[in-house]
């Protein structure tokens, strides 16, 4: 296939990606150094209230945004350098917290709070996802052929459900005197409020995420189990390997490429944890990096969106993605060079 045909086939897709992914990235990068604000002017307003003999007059200085001839607010954009990054990172507060040695003070700063949760979430759900996924795969593989279809059908439900709705449905089971909270209260004989502190919400979120993604891992690994070489299993048996050893030394190595694949997808997806925050409406206690950017983008009460702060926090989020992807990308590059 010569270059021109290749370009004709790939062209539309490349244009889409350049226009809607690469270009916004550049624009986010530049936006993070600029700030757009309405221009204010100071107006003296004299308000008078009628009184006996003399009026009482008060002169106030109000700052009001300047309007242009269409009645729209005039804004100006200026270069502020790293100011937006400073606003997001709040290094002075970090420094104070650090000097006091106070973790709680450190965790009141939005960005660091979000970073802490995102990393814990990613690192704790990864092994859980792999474990539960492998368990599901092995169990389906053990089950009789006739029930595998229905079991896979049921397993797919948590995977396919809209993430926000899935989180909401778990939320409804636990919120207030939701049915599962009621059962836990009845079992323990104590009053349980799962949405009153951060750590219980975090556990629920992680449980939800494992529930949501484990079917994916399960089905991929189940497909992998179908291709395990029966001969090597039998020779391991003849060599006296126990069930556990066969699992450890024959099956797991065979599944290793798939496990790497699932881990990579999982790291990418759970680093962007967001829907859980919306579904559990946990923003009062727990936030994530992607939610932080989202929150800057949502208009506040005055209808302003803090675009430059959102851009700064978006660029900081990107740093994590780059770190996350270095290892797998280097491996792929080595494989590609090796195959040529």
């Amino acid at each position: 296939m010569n270059f021109r045909t290749f370009a004709a086939f790939v062209g539309p897709s490349i244009v889409m990606m350049l226009l809607f992914i690469a270009f916004p990235l550049i624009s986010v990068f530049t936006q993070s150094f600029y700030i757009t604000q309405p221009i204010y002017e100071v107006v003296e307003v004299e308000t008078c209230t009628p009184g006996f003999l003399t009026q009482t007059c008060v002169t106030e200085e109000n700052s009001v945004p300047i309007l242009d001839e269409h009645g729209e607010i005039v804004t100006k954009t200026e270069f502020v350098g790293l100011q937006s990054y400073r606003n997001v990172l709040e290094l002075d507060r970090v420094w104070t917290a650090f000097r006091e040695g106070s973790w709680t003070a450190f965790q009141t700063i939005d960005f660091w709070k979000a970073l802490r949760f995102t990393l814990t979430f990613t690192l704790i759900t990864l092994p859980l996802n792999l474990g539960v996924g492998l368990g599901i795969a092995l169990m389906i593989n053990n089950a009789a052929k006739s029930i595998r279809g229905p079991v896979i059908f049921i397993s797919l439900l948590p995977f396919i459900i809209t993430p926000v709705i899935g989180a909401l449905s778990i939320n409804w089971l636990f919120r207030g005197d939701g049915i599962l909270t009621a059962i836990m209260e009845w079992y323990s004989g104590r009053d349980i409020a799962l949405f009153a502190q951060a750590w219980t919400i975090e556990i629920l979120m992680m449980l939800y995420r494992v529930w949501h993604v484990a079917p994916f891992a399960g089905i991929v690994l189940y497909a992998g189990l179908q291709t395990v070489n029966q001969d090597s299993l039998e020779s391991a048996l003849i060599d006296g390997a126990s069930r556990w050893q066969r699992m450890r030394y024959v099956i797991i190595p065979h599944l290793m490429p798939l496990i790497t694949f699932i881990s990579m997808i999982h790291l990418m997806d759970s680093y962007r944890v967001f829907e859980e925050i919306v579904g559990f409406s946990s923003q009062g206690h727990v936030i994530s990096l992607q939610w932080l950017t989202y929150d800057f983008l949502v208009p506040d009460q005055a209808g302003n969106r803090s675009i430059s702060r959102a851009s700064a926090s978006a660029m900081l989020t990107m740093v994590g993605i780059v770190i996350l992807l270095i290892a797998p990308l280097r491996r792929t590059w080595r494989d590609h060079k090796g195959s040529n």
Binding site: V28, L297, I307, S311, T317, I321, L324, L325
Partner: peptide, 21 residues
Amino acid sequence: IIALIFRALPHSVLVAGYLPV
């Protein structure tokens, strides 16, 4: 490879690019 990197991007990063535009 570049597509793979794009796949990893959080969507809010991209939306931050679209919104003002």
